[in-house]
């Protein structure tokens, strides 16, 4: 299986994603340069984190109108799995692939720390390998990760089982106290309507090897591999 990793000017988790799928999971991987986005041969896409276009204007806003997004939208439409992580999530929101928007963290500061995530749906293209694992730990690292959507949209997301991850404590409880950034309903990751595009603020690519944390992030990429095969 071949992962394409989209690189915008300012992407900075592209190498980490490459390392994760290529060296840790032994899959094929290729960088997709934003200016000539040839997705031929890719089975899945990763839109990595970083500060595309310096986050100038608004996080993800400039990348969302890049030629690469035309290709990514078509790729999503064909039903292929696409994961947007951190800035990648912001780009998927800004481009309309996913609903809602990101605002500044509630205390207006950048936060880098480990979080616990409650897995709300283990039957998606991104969680099919979770079995009965309901809680994972992944790091966050962002300044604009407070998810916002109107009440109707939130209801739809909940009703359709599209809220995939929620910020929780180590027992899996979800409350205001376990919300690091002010996201509505503690949302950490959501799916598109068709279930093949995931946006999440936490970084699964940073939790691939126990020597630098844990291996919970593997499950997400392994689920994508399972979904494609």
């Amino acid at each position: 299986m071949k992962f394409g990793i989209v690189v915008f000017p300012g992407s900075n988790c592209d190498h980490d994603c490459y390392h994760a799928v290529k060296h840790v999971l032994g899959q094929e991987a290729a960088f997709i340069w934003h200016a000539n986005p040839d997705l031929n041969g890719c089975d899945a896409l990763i839109v990595p984190g970083g500060f595309s276009y310096g986050d100038y204007l608004r996080a993800g806003a400039m990348a969302a109108i890049s030629p690469a997004l035309t290709e990514i939208k078509a790729f999503v439409k064909r039903g292929n799995p696409v994961i947007g992580i951190c800035n990648g999530f912001q780009i998927l929101l800004e481009s309309g692939i996913l609903p809602g928007a990101m605002i500044r963290n509630k205390d207006l500061r950048f936060i880098c720390k480990d979080t616990f995530l409650r897995v709300e749906n283990n039957n998606s293209k991104f969680t099919n390998k979770f079995n009965d694992k309901k809680l994972i730990s992944l790091p966050i690292a962002h300044a604009e990760g407070s998810y916002y959507a109107d009440a109707e949209e939130l209801k739809r997301l909940e009703g359709e089982g599209r809220v995939l991850f929620r910020y929780a404590d180590k027992e899996g409880n979800v409350s205001n106290d376990t919300n690091p950034n002010g996201s509505l309903l503690n949302i950490a990751g959501i799916l598109n309507k068709e279930g093949n595009a995931l946006g999440m603020m936490p970084h699964p690519e940073r939790s691939m090897e126990s020597i630098v944390g844990n291996e919970d992030g593997r499950l997400i990429f392994e689920s994508m591999i399972e979904a494609v095969s």
């Binding site: 900075n12 988790c13 190498h15 980490d16 390392h19 994760a20 500061r109 950048f110 936060i111 880098c112 720390k113 790091p139 690292a141 970084h203 690519e205 940073r206 691939m208 090897e209 020597i211 630098v212 944390g213």
Partner: peptide, 14 residues
């Protein structure tokens, strides 16, 4: 202080 710094990017911080 260090929570405001990304200290896990590059996935090499042992």
């Amino acid at each position: 202080v260090y929570q405001q710094y990304d200290h896990t990017i590059r996935t090499d911080t042992v």
